[in-house]
Design a binder for these strands. Sequence first.
DNA 1: TCACATTGCTAATGCGTATAAGCAACAGTC
DNA 2: GACTGTTGCTTATACGCATTAGCAATGTGA
Lengths: 341, 341
Amino acid sequence: MRISNSRVTATEVARKAGVSQPTVSLVLSRNPKARVAPATRARVLKIAQELGYRPNRLAQGLVRRRSYALGVIVPGFDNPVYAAVISGAEKVAAQAGYAVLLCEAKGSEVVQHLEALRDRQIDGVIIAGIAASTLPAAALDGLNVVLVNQPSEKFSTVGSDSLKAGTIAAEHLLALGHRRLAFLGPADAIPAFRLRERGFFQALRGAGVPLSSELIQRAAATVAGGLAGMRALLALSERPTAVFCANDLMALGAHKACSVAGVGLPRDLSLLGCDDIEMAQLVTPELSTIAVPARELGARAVRLLLKQIDAHGALPPASQLLAVKLVARGTTGQHAPAQPR
Amino acid sequence: MRISNSRVTATEVARKAGVSQPTVSLVLSRNPKARVAPATRARVLKIAQELGYRPNRLAQGLVRRRSYALGVIVPGFDNPVYAAVISGAEKVAAQAGYAVLLCEAKGSEVVQHLEALRDRQIDGVIIAGIAASTLPAAALDGLNVVLVNQPSEKFSTVGSDSLKAGTIAAEHLLALGHRRLAFLGPADAIPAFRLRERGFFQALRGAGVPLSSELIQRAAATVAGGLAGMRALLALSERPTAVFCANDLMALGAHKACSVAGVGLPRDLSLLGCDDIEMAQLVTPELSTIAVPARELGARAVRLLLKQIDAHGALPPASQLLAVKLVARGTTGQHAPAQPR
DNA sequence: TCACATTGCTAATGCGTATAAGCAACAGTC
DNA sequence: GACTGTTGCTTATACGCATTAGCAATGTGA
């Protein structure tokens, strides 16, 4: 039975139970070495229950030097991938009794958000979609950190195999007979994108099909960016026959650009994304892409972080790399040399 | 200059500055009635700066009885609308020095999450996409609450005009000459959906074009739901000529179903969504919909909540209703009676 | 000169909890 | 029956900060 506001303190419970406040604390903190007489324990528990006592987490945090709160920083929610990461993270965190403090931040804002999180004594932080290398070293100093989807020597990471994703992309398109390939990706140094790109380039070079520079198109990693980037590619005198995009948002933008320009997918052009967001299946033809287990990344990031927290920083940085998988749908197809008629 | 961990306390600053701890507190809390000698103030500020002192928010919260944290509860991030609400909320909150504790919860989980938030002494909570009426009264008792997109007598609300949205939908489709309309929406009692539905039905009845029950299709408010729902509608012996969906996710699912079934939009069928999420513009033809200012809802919800918090609950519940707007794109068109040939 | 206000700081206290240390009561040993 | 051990609780204290009251030093007026 809850009595209005949760303003019932341990001291009140103690008074009504005829014991001292620390005794209440002893009863409630299931401490094995705390010996309390069964009768007392029962009485305290009963009163606590009746009064609806719940420990004040702020006070607990203050004395335990633990807030049981995690920070999660992402560059934006407009990308469903981050939404999925957060979702996975929140679920695991909540189950473990941890709260998630959410921050949306780009660029230098990140540092301020980190400071704010520190002030709240967060036990750890998860950073997704932001290159840790771009942050001043002091910003993460002494913090429990897990990075999502970016390799690091210094911090623990949970990622998908972005390099492999790029390789898979190249192999898929090559296998379909394409030889004039293009890449559409952002100019900024977000590690996951960079790795996908590198994997793609490396595989192409390995196959003896290097990319000429006009076939590397830079644009923001958004729908709008993909749209603009694809328009630029379509404006080339000699168009590519297949395009790999750094993520699905770009690919969907590119998809749209093709649709607007009357370029048939995959007849005139093969298009491949990366992430496998839900929307990939909604466009027609459905977007071929490379699936990244975003939710799982978030979930694992929290599990790893909690492990680190429990170890009091005595753990070396660990890394997990999850597999990615080609999901060939409707936008990639066999290269058909144009039939002059 | 930050010195590693933010373990610098006010007491340390005080010691180095040769003053007492409360003096440091007086200097840093820009309290107008706190008169501190300019020289002392300067000295304290200087030392605090040098040591990188930052107040412990937990301790502050404990004594001020304010955590400067807000809870935000949504049913899921898979719907971009909630992502937008959160984004708007987080931005305003961060600017005001408030943290956002994010919770993803459906059904009875909500109550538990609310309890957990209370334990953390949150100053207020924003609830979106969950009917407050389904919660036990005690769950929100004594809490500063702002509901998003659902009317309420008891709590403050920030919403879009969902009833109007339904009306607009009906008017738009009627104006295009449609007389056999269908509605596709969820069976659960999420207020925004219910209102859109009611507005739609009312307007149709007003126009003398009531909906027969087989043209009201129930399915989850998701892409999958929309897909299934539209399939059911297409299986009718006499198909509707226009369909209004409770939200864009459903509409996109429906869009897909049409595409798969070879039903031409808008030639064979007009399709109208609600929300105007980014993806609406990515399908071909682009989805006609009714724009809801989701980000703005989140932003305003926080502003309202902060106002309430500052008033210490001495404010009566306030409500804001933002306008919605028809965005006619490619999936709605003039009703063309089938030409028998 | 004294009474009194003002200024500028400190001492004391509390927020709600956890934890170490201490102290009765009692049991067991010889 | 004094000695040690155990049990079961309480007292004291700390976490880091804000806030009230209070006190010394200075200024003001007569």
